[in-house]
């Protein structure tokens, strides 16, 4: 890794073949879903190579790479939790005892909203979900408000492109 950090391309394949099984194995142990683990490990491997030039030779390579993998796994888990929360919100049913017409309208609106939401990026959908649920954001409130505002604009645009007026 020290050689790769210094620009020695001949070290690339050695680093790749050494780190790949290590990171994939570690991600599989951290995450329940093997597919999610594979995605997170891939992201981690790419992040390792992206930051290779910043590698500090005084640090242990495996510890450094595994820390990046753990971070990617945490990010993937957060994303997955947000997506699940969004699915739950979309799947909410109208109150029992509502008349059939209201139920039908609610169902159609829910399906249309889910379709528009599904066309958004994951970050936008997660921001809207967090805002609707009144969750406390992990980022600065001003940045979160801006993100929600942008996500709302995109949702409006997605709705307009499907159903005309918002």
């Amino acid at each position: 890794m020290t050689r790769l950090a210094d620009g020695d391309r001949s070290a690339f394949s050695t680093v790749f073949t050494t780190l790949r099984p290590l990171l994939f194995g570690f991600a599989r142990r951290l995450m329940r879903d093997p597919a999610d683990a594979e995605d997170a490990a891939q992201q981690a491997l790419l992040a390792v190579f992206e930051h290779a030039h910043r590698y500090d030779p005084s640090r242990d390579v495996a510890a450094w790479a595994l820390a990046i993998t753990a971070h990617e796994c945490n990010a993937a888990r957060r994303k997955s939790r947000r997506a699940e929360a969004l699915d739950d919100a979309v799947a909410e049913r109208p109150a029992p005892g509502a008349d059939p017409e209201t139920v039908a309208i609610d169902r159609d609106l829910t399906a249309a909203a889910a379709e528009a939401l599904g066309s958004l990026r994951t970050e936008d959908a997660a921001a809207l979900s967090a805002a609707w649920r009144g969750e406390r954001p992990a980022i600065a409130p001003a940045a979160f408000r801006k993100r929600v505002q942008r996500a709302t604009e995109r949702l409006r645009a997605a709705w307009r492109s499907r159903h005309g007026t918002p």
């Binding site: 790769l4 620009g7 690339f12 394949s13 790749f16 790949r20 891939q42 491997l45 790419l46 190579f49 992206e50 930051h51 290779a52 030039h53």
Partner: peptide, 21 residues
């Protein structure tokens, strides 16, 4: 898949080095 991932990793590595340069 490994080859494709290695190619992506190499591209990421080179572009990060270029940005830094």
């Amino acid at each position: 898949d490994d080859l494709a991932l290695a190619r992506r990793a190499r591209l990421v590595y080179e572009s990060a080095r270029l940005r830094r340069a």
